[in-house]
Protein backbone atom coordinates (compact mmCIF):
# COMPACT_ATOMS: atom_id res chain seq x y z
CA UNK A 1 0.00 0.00 0.00
CA UNK A 2 1.30 3.43 -0.96
CA UNK A 3 1.64 5.98 1.79
CA UNK A 4 0.17 9.07 0.14
CA UNK A 5 1.48 11.28 2.89
CA UNK A 6 5.04 10.13 2.38
CA UNK A 7 4.63 10.52 -1.34
CA UNK A 8 3.45 14.09 -0.95
CA UNK A 9 6.35 14.78 1.38
CA UNK A 10 8.75 13.53 -1.26
CA UNK A 11 7.40 16.06 -3.73
CA UNK A 12 7.82 18.95 -1.35
CA UNK A 13 10.84 20.74 0.01
CA UNK A 14 11.16 23.14 2.89
CA UNK A 15 12.67 26.58 2.29
CA UNK A 16 12.87 29.68 4.45
CA UNK A 17 11.11 32.74 3.05
CA UNK A 18 11.72 36.01 4.91
CA UNK A 19 12.66 34.06 8.00
CA UNK A 20 9.65 31.74 7.90
CA UNK A 21 9.74 28.02 7.09
CA UNK A 22 7.65 27.33 4.01
CA UNK A 23 6.87 24.15 2.06
CA UNK A 24 6.89 24.32 -1.71
CA UNK A 25 6.75 21.74 -4.52
CA UNK A 26 10.18 20.49 -5.55
CA UNK A 27 9.70 21.80 -9.09
CA UNK A 28 9.18 25.43 -8.09
CA UNK A 29 11.37 28.29 -9.23
CA UNK A 30 11.49 31.79 -7.74
CA UNK A 31 8.97 32.76 -10.39
CA UNK A 32 6.45 30.24 -9.01
CA UNK A 33 7.03 31.49 -5.50
CA UNK A 34 6.55 35.17 -6.43
CA UNK A 35 3.35 34.30 -8.31
CA UNK A 36 2.04 32.22 -5.42
CA UNK A 37 2.68 35.05 -2.98
CA UNK A 38 0.91 37.45 -5.37
CA UNK A 39 3.76 39.95 -5.25
CA UNK A 40 4.31 42.67 -7.79
CA UNK A 41 7.29 41.55 -9.80
CA UNK A 42 8.54 45.02 -10.61
CA UNK A 43 8.59 46.13 -7.00
CA UNK A 44 10.56 43.39 -5.29
CA UNK A 45 14.12 42.13 -5.18
CA UNK A 46 15.02 38.55 -4.32
CA UNK A 47 18.02 36.99 -2.63
CA UNK A 48 18.69 33.25 -2.42
CA UNK A 49 21.27 32.39 0.21
CA UNK A 50 22.47 36.01 0.16
CA UNK A 51 22.93 36.05 -3.61
CA UNK A 52 20.71 38.42 -5.55
CA UNK A 53 18.77 36.74 -8.34
CA UNK A 54 17.75 39.21 -11.02
CA UNK A 55 14.18 39.14 -12.36
CA UNK A 56 15.14 37.61 -15.69
CA UNK A 57 16.60 34.61 -13.85
CA UNK A 58 13.60 33.97 -11.62
CA UNK A 59 12.04 31.38 -13.94
CA UNK A 60 15.35 29.59 -14.41
CA UNK A 61 16.38 29.45 -10.78
CA UNK A 62 15.28 26.19 -9.13
CA UNK A 63 14.90 26.20 -5.37
CA UNK A 64 16.53 23.62 -3.15
CA UNK A 65 15.76 22.27 0.28
CA UNK A 66 16.86 24.64 3.02
CA UNK A 67 17.33 27.66 0.71
CA UNK A 68 17.00 30.97 2.49
CA UNK A 69 14.96 33.38 0.40
CA UNK A 70 14.69 37.08 1.15
CA UNK A 71 12.09 39.12 -0.66
CA UNK A 72 12.41 42.87 -0.12
CA UNK A 73 10.78 46.04 -1.39
CA UNK A 74 10.90 49.77 -0.72
CA UNK A 75 9.32 51.21 2.40
CA UNK A 76 9.14 54.69 3.83
CA UNK A 77 12.55 55.43 5.25
CA UNK A 78 13.24 56.03 7.89
CA UNK A 79 16.70 56.03 9.44
CA UNK A 80 15.85 54.73 12.87
CA UNK A 81 14.65 51.37 11.65
CA UNK A 82 16.68 48.28 12.29
CA UNK A 83 18.16 46.12 9.60
CA UNK A 84 15.29 43.65 9.40
CA UNK A 85 16.87 41.09 7.14
CA UNK A 86 19.30 40.04 9.79
CA UNK A 87 16.58 39.97 12.39
Amino acid sequence: MVDTHARREAREIEIIVNGKKTKIPTTWTIDNLIRDLELRRKQVAVEVNEQIISRERWSKQPLGSGDRIEIVHFVGGGKEDKCLING
Binding site: V72, H73, F74, V75, G77
Partner: peptide, 19 residues
Protein backbone atom coordinates in the same frame (compact mmCIF):
# COMPACT_ATOMS: atom_id res chain seq x y z
CA UNK B 1 12.97 60.95 -2.66
CA UNK B 2 14.80 58.47 -0.51
CA UNK B 3 13.34 55.09 0.45
CA UNK B 4 14.44 52.23 2.68
CA UNK B 5 14.73 48.54 1.73
CA UNK B 6 12.87 46.06 3.95
CA UNK B 7 11.38 42.59 3.88
CA UNK B 8 7.99 42.28 2.22
CA UNK B 9 5.36 41.48 4.84
CA UNK B 10 4.10 38.12 3.65
CA UNK B 11 1.50 37.61 6.35
CA UNK B 12 -0.31 40.90 5.79
CA UNK B 13 -0.37 41.47 2.08
CA UNK B 14 -3.28 43.88 2.37
CA UNK B 15 -0.73 46.57 3.14
CA UNK B 16 -0.39 49.09 0.37
CA UNK B 17 2.87 49.54 -1.44
CA UNK B 18 4.95 52.70 -1.05
CA UNK B 19 5.73 52.86 -4.75
Amino acid sequence: VTVAVRRVNLTDKSKESLL
